[in-house]
């Protein structure tokens, strides 16, 4: 099982570097996956995407060899009701950034290959409308007030 996982990851990195065009204007930081309770196979991931170019970048999909599917979602609270809206794509304006953060935009990760614990990592490839992509490693972390605080700090900084 472990060998298969290793092979999948290696294959993923090699195939991405061979066939895809790396997106040089998008910088992805603080990518993390929230550790989920046992037997929960829908996880959330968060990150910050910074567009350093003068052109709009559109995120159209995300893939990972360790998850069956990844979707972009937006959590909303309307009339005290929590809803999630699936997003077909996400625009990152020129010289601007978009944050995936708890309670806001997040990535929904379906059916992990194996249960993921804090400290584990997963490669994730962000694919853009122009065909370019960016592969990063996201680390699994336990969710605590810290993640929440980060969100607040970030908002205060802007």
């Amino acid at each position: 099982m472990h060998n298969i996982k290793l092979f999948l990851i290696l294959f993923f990195f090699v195939s991405n570097s061979l066939f895809a065009d790396e997106n040089k204007s998008i910088h992805i930081s603080n990518a993390w996956i929230s550790e989920a309770p046992p037997n929960v196979y829908i996880l959330a991931a968060y990150a910050e995407l910074k567009n350093t170019s003068t052109e709009t970048q559109t995120l159209v999909s995300i893939t990972s060899p360790l998850f069956s599917m990844i979707e972009i979602h937006l959590s909303k609270i309307i009339d005290e009701t929590a809803k999630m809206e699936k997003q077909k794509s996400l625009i990152i304006p020129a010289n601007d950034s978009v944050e995936f953060a708890p309670g806001a935009y997040h990535l929904m990760l379906f059916s992990p290959e194996t249960p993921m614990k804090a400290g584990d990592t997963a490669p994730m490839t962000f694919i853009f409308a122009d065909g370019s992509s960016k592969t990063i490693e996201a680390v699994v972390k336990k969710r605590n007030n810290h993640s929440h605080d980060h969100n607040h700090d970030h908002k205060n900084n802007h």
């Binding site: 929230s34 829908i42 929590a82 007030n145 929440h148």
Partner: peptide, 19 residues
Amino acid sequence: FGYTHCPDVCPITMSVMNE
């Protein structure tokens, strides 16, 4: 009120309530 397949709002609320 929530559901275990909820990846964002529910675990946020649960961990905040835990704190």
